[in-house]
Design a protein around this nucleic acid. Sequence first.
RNA 1: GGCGAGGUAGCUCAGUUGGUUAGAGCGCAUGAUUCAUAAUCAUGAGGUCGCCGGUUCAAUCCCGGCUCUCGCUACCA
Length: 674
Amino acid sequence: MQKNWKRYTVTSALPYANGPIHIGHLAGVYIPADIYVRYLRIKGKDVIFICGSDEHGVPITIKALQEKVTPQQIVDRYHAMIKKSFEDFGISFDIYSRTTNKVHYETASQFFKTLYNKGIFIEKTTEQYYDTELNQFLADRYIVGTCPHCGNEKAYGDQCEKCGTSLNPTDLINPRSAISGSELVLKETKHWFLPLDKFESALRKWILEEHTEWKSNVYGQCKSWLDMGLQPRAVSRDLEWGVPVPVEGAQGKVLYVWFDAPIGYISATKELSSDWEKYWKDKDTCLIHFIGKDNIVFHCIVFPAMLMAEGSYILPENVPANEFLNLEGDKISTSRNWAVWLHEYLQEFPGKQDVLRYVLTANMPETKDNDFTWKDFQTRNNSELVAILGNFVNRTLVLTHKYFNGSVPLCQDIKQEEFEMLNEIAQIKSNIELNIETFKFRDALKEYMNIARLGNKYLTETEPWKLINKDIERTKAIIAICLEITGTLAILGQPFLPFTSEKLYKMLNLENITWDDVGKKPIFKAGHVVNKAELLFDKIEDSVIEYQINKLKASKQNFQNNYVQLKNNISYDEFAKMDVRIATITHAEKVPKTDNLLKITVDLGFEQRIVVSGVAHCYKPEELIGKQVCLLANLEPRKIKGIESKGMILFVENGEQLVALSPINSVKNGSVVK
RNA sequence: GGCGAGGUAGCUCAGUUGGUUAGAGCGCAUGAUUCAUAAUCAUGAGGUCGCCGGUUCAAUCCCGGCUCUCGCUACCA
């Protein structure tokens, strides 16, 4: 079943460049990918490890607006920050690129053109107003003109505020741009859609029949999507920020970020090597995408469909998606600043990259969401890394120096049990290999630690400190065996704890010994000199952990005290356009087949109205009945789940909660709020 | 609401193609030990395997329903 691959292309999800990297990213994607890649390299495989910043999309443009800088400035900042923290942390990318690169623009454009020329896309053309001054198409609400019904000269492209009529922009007389004030011309505009439905049967065969070995979360979600039936998906957007759609008449349109981002893997490979094609087009290349569970559909359905459509690319062999990591019982959130940031960790815990790698690997969310706590971080460091691994190495080296001046003793007197133990270690090695190859990194690490456990047990049972004066030959054998185990730990630790392995290599003066030698030939020759023991790990004190926990608590406080920025001033006229009234809720019920919608009947005094509000997660219907609330009464009606909603009840946002606004004293329904 | 994944010891997780006493690590208790960063080693306590029903001689594992968590998705002006 296992194919003999000639080479491996390993990608890890492109982090979105609107914030720094946190432990959730690491545990979900980058650490497992890095372990896998380091392992393949050690085994002598031809492997490239690809990543980069995903720098397009609307959230970045919004952040830029908020901070009054350009999108490029935003992505420059975070790209640099993310890149550096990955480097310092030891994620061993062969290249960490970015999607604002020239190579990427060319690659993404070319990819689009290829599909375009093959006639893959569905094109839908509509006529839209075009602002010749701004050189862009305008959304309906940015178009003003004269209402054909009431003659109001300031009607919007979607609605006339005066007579309340719903309009199309083309209904307006003398349409003008609300932004530049200039006259508008009607222009045809195209949108391109990738017809995923046409790839459905191929995807179905490829995943559901040929990749039953995929993780259950991945397989299950793919099946769910395929069973629902796939729909064509737009690949273009009306935005300035992104890769321009490389087709005539596509000014002001860019590739939708989901289309351009995965192509980033390919462009990064191009940037890395002129010989890039064999990593993406040769059938003997094994392509693996490491991602988080939120990305499953894109990497298993959408991107493969793109690759199939293009025709010359290979498809991923596996997509080992992890679940999510929580922090101290709460979802990690960039916007709420509820996270352990990598760049801060690196500053506050210098030289402790491997501790975080260890803890996040041991508790990796492979099968379900897991929780990271600082207490657990401390315990795993103190009672596993220090007490089991570090301690065993230290014991061995101290004894070697104490009894044999640091030189490896000649081992002549080996017992049957000792052969068996060494065989067991060889077995553990192959368990580690199997686990890594099947993406079970938690188990692999556990197996690795079992080697150190065996060592500690062996030392305690053989008690060389009692034998040194009675039986020197046995003592020599025991220490030599302990050194072999220590050497094994150095070699097999490389994928998991690269910094620690490096330290161990230096301490042991290890050279010219490879992963494949372990279990086949002795690591040391008698007389080989090892250095003095240095502690591999330090204990982490309670105060350090308390500091981190307090820091988190403070960031929660800060977030709660954080106020939303004020919007720009408006004129009184603009305010006066809103007609807010007091109304009493007379009836409320859940809208069937929705989670969050309530159908609410309100009494405005002069009329009864039905409003649909998304507040079912905060209020039960009966809690609202009889309450007086504020209603934005002249909001354009809108159909929601088949119900016409006339107006909007005003709520206060209080964290996750929504709280209805009520007058202090009871007033007449229909009263004006001003 | 639809779909997917998960709910097993105090914590983090394995596992059982249904079959006598359900496992690991950490934590806890007791004992041993001192080469070692009060580290190590042994032993032990602790679980109606989310809830209810069904199939079966027998279910934690199969089937149906329910419930909780997370995600995708729809809808939240």
